[in-house]
Amino acid sequence: MFKLNFELANPKRFMDLSAKLLPWIWVIAVGLLGTGLYMALFVAPPDYQQGETVRMMFIHVPAASMATMVYMFMAASSAVALIMKHPLADMAAKAAAPIGAGYTLLALITGSLWGKPMWGTWWVWDARLTSVLVLFFLYIGYMALWEAMEEPVKAAKAAAVLCLVGVVNIPVIKFSVEWWNTLHQPTSLAKMDGPAIHSSMLWPLAIMALAYGALFVALLLLRMRTEILKRRVRSLQLSRARAAVQAGAA
């Protein structure tokens, strides 16, 4: 009788551990997010130049940095998956992608919303927004490659190669976009992060960043668990189909 590769489809220790941790991480994430949002929207003072619009920064800036950090996390997981062939690593990269893409989209939307009152237009080809936009395209490509390949083992490797190519290119893209921006925009526009941030703004910003981090971990574990269960269902279906063929042949 053939075996299913349950060792791949059912990493038991991960399932046990994540089941125990997940509720606590959710509590931390929701708590931090609530506190952070309250401080950002009600406690922090309005900016003397930007007015109330500055509150958008507390949502935008951590989202933009999460966008990059999640991609770095994916690249690290991909490297581990390719080199050490740990089955959880490619799952982690896959599970992280839509979360990262979500933060990237959030950064783009809040950046655009912030741009309307500040720049008088919904979109300005500002260096950071442009980099985030290209990063968003990288996320989309990564997820599309996963979707396009039917064999999960193969898809994992291909996506890992793509992710590593992306991570090598991100600094080049960032540099080129910033360089391009200074080339074409000699007049300086208001930037979202001023040179000196007052401590009354630093606290909500830090808490929001932590909240995003905790939310990422919670969503990541949830998505990984779902993925593991999905793969288990897939192998069970395959084994059933296989058994039916054998019964028919006998």
């Binding site: 290209v134 395209f137 990288l138 989309i140 490509g141 599309a144 490659l145 396009a148 390949m149 291909a158 190669v161 793509l162 190519v165 992306g166 290119n169 080049v172 893209i173 540099f175 080129s176 976009v177 360089w179 391009w180």
Partner: peptide
């Protein structure tokens, strides 16, 4: 990356174009 995929051509553009931003700039 897309060799052997059905409709690989469209996906190919999606993967390649963002990486070509620095060359264009």
């Amino acid at each position: 990356l897309t060799v052997g995929l059905r409709r690989g051509g469209l996906l190919l553009s999606l993967l390649v174009l963002p990486l070509q931003v620095p060359v264009l700039i």
